[in-house]
Every structure is written in C-alpha cells, then in structure tokens.
Amino acid sequence: MTRGRKLQILLGIPAVLLLFVFLILPLTGMVEMSFRTSGTNAPYGDGFTTSHYVRVLGDSFFMTTLLRSLVTAAIVTALCLIVSYPLAWHLSKARGGKALLLYACIASPLMTGVLVRNFGWMIVTAIDGPLNASLIGLGLISRPLRLLFTQGLVIMALVHVFVPFMVLPINNALRNINPALSEASLSLGAGRVSTFLRIILPLSFPGIQPGVILVFVLSVAAYVTPALLGGQMVNLMPTLIIRELTGTFAWPFGSTLAIVMSVATLSIVICFSLLTAKLMERVRA
C-alpha cells in the first residue's frame, strides 16, 4: 500500500466514525426498537413483534397523516423553488456590496432562533394581530381571518425558513454557467425566453436537484414549526412521532412511525433522483 493511499485512509477514518456514531448506530437502534413489544411499566418490552407495522400500515389515520406530511413537503418544496430561482438569479449576477447584502437578506431567516421566529408568526397572524388589523383597515376583509393553526400558515412558515437551502445551490450552479453560452444563443437569433428554457434552466439543474431534495427532506422532518403554528389542528407525521416517543412513552410504536416516514421519504427521493438522472448526465457531459 502506497503512502498516499495510507494517508487517504487515515483522513477518511474520522468521517467514517462520525457516520457510524451519529447515523448508523441511531438508525440501527431505531429499527430494532420498532420491532420491540410494548412495555407495561417501561417504554418497551423484552420481546419482538411486527404488530406495530401492521397497525401503522393498516390504519387509515396514520396513512392519511403520512400522505399529508409528504404532500405538505412537496408544496413547500415547489414554492421554495418558485421563490428561490429569481433570488438565486439576481444573487448570481450581483457583485461586491450588493452580493453581501443579498446574501444577508436570504440567510436572515436562519439567523433567528426557531422559537423566536415561530412566535413572531403567531403574533403577526393572531386574530387581533397586525396582519388582520391591516387587512380590516384597508377594507379588504370585514372580519378577522383565522390564520393561526392552519396548514397554510405552516407551509408559509416552512417556505420562509427553507428558501436559503434552495437559493444557495441554485446560485452556485448559475455562477458556473459560462456567460458565452447565453451570448451565443442570443446572437444566433434565439429570444431570451428560449435561451433561458433551453440553456440556462437545464444547466442550472445541478443546483435545482440537490436543493429540491434537501428542502423536501427537511420539510418532511420539520417538527417545531408544525407543532407551534399547526397545533392540534394540523396533524403531521413528526408531531405524531414526538407525541408517541415523549408523550405516551410508546417507544416501539413511535420508532415504527419514524421508520415508515423515513422509508417513504427515501423512496420518493430515490425515484426523483432516478427520474432526473439522465438530465444530470446530459448537463455534466
């Protein structure tokens, strides 16, 4: 074994250890816990069973909640993409102080604590909050709207915080596009819309794909925002999981819910990656 090969192995050991300790071990423990029997005086029993999976997969309530979580995540991802692409476009063209200002504005949701940010949404959207007061004052509505504890508010709040995770990879992809390609297209008679759809948009897909996957996974697993802004009126899978794990201390059943949600999310991510693999290969070629 060469010296360079030994150095590569030594440098890779910390990463492997981190993955093993913080990913593989917890996931293995979660899978094992999902097959444990329910305990009477303890969070779990000594035996093993598949009844938890039968219960989850056979109960329409849990399947509906899972579907609602996945659909909510898909809507959040789509809205983030719609909002983020123009921001990433302007950010990729900005230089100097303007670029720093745009970076600060885009990253601002991440600079505020999750509790502070969500309590801000609660204050703004309350029945007697400033948003309803402004709409009534402008004559747009006659009575206050119930915005708090709705799925729409949860989606809006998630879009607000996850936009930076979509903007930054798209911005990097747009910056890597050679400006000469657009100039050549325009000089050959193609319009700006045609140039964007045929050149810019496909070449920016290496930023769109990871941004979509990242935002989708984060949206499915989001807990604090749906719990605070959705309350008991919006049931999503993470809130059910935490309720089982910490509320009733039903660790095996809560672990089963987590595994089912993870498998469903991973399946969607794999399907999306396979469907977009050819486009990624064409762009990289």
Score class of each variant (00 low, 15 high):
L214D: 04
R146G: 04
S187W: 05
P26A: 08
S194E: 12
M280I: 14
A78R: 06
L67N: 08
G191W: 02
I259V: 15
S108C: 05
L102P: 03
G231W: 07
A250N: 15
A180L: 12
L100M: 13
L115W: 10
L168F: 15
V260T: 08
I259P: 08
Y85V: 13
W251F: 04
I213D: 01
L228H: 06
L10E: 03
S255Q: 07
L11P: 04
R146D: 08
V283Q: 11
L110C: 01
I199D: 01
G29F: 02
G254F: 00
S262W: 00
V193P: 02
T49K: 12
L67R: 07
L197V: 09
I242M: 13
M156Y: 11
G254H: 09
E244K: 15
I241C: 10
V56Y: 06
L153Q: 07
V31M: 14
L66D: 03
S69K: 05
V263Q: 01
A250I: 09
V260H: 10
E281T: 13
R68V: 06
V212K: 03
S84Q: 07
P169M: 02
R282G: 11
A157I: 14
N176C: 01
F162T: 09
P43G: 01
P26G: 09
L27E: 03
N178Y: 00
L168G: 01
I213Q: 12
L257D: 03
L115Q: 06
V217I: 15
Y53D: 07
A107H: 09
V283G: 08
L158Y: 11
P206F: 03
V154A: 01
I106L: 09
V161A: 07
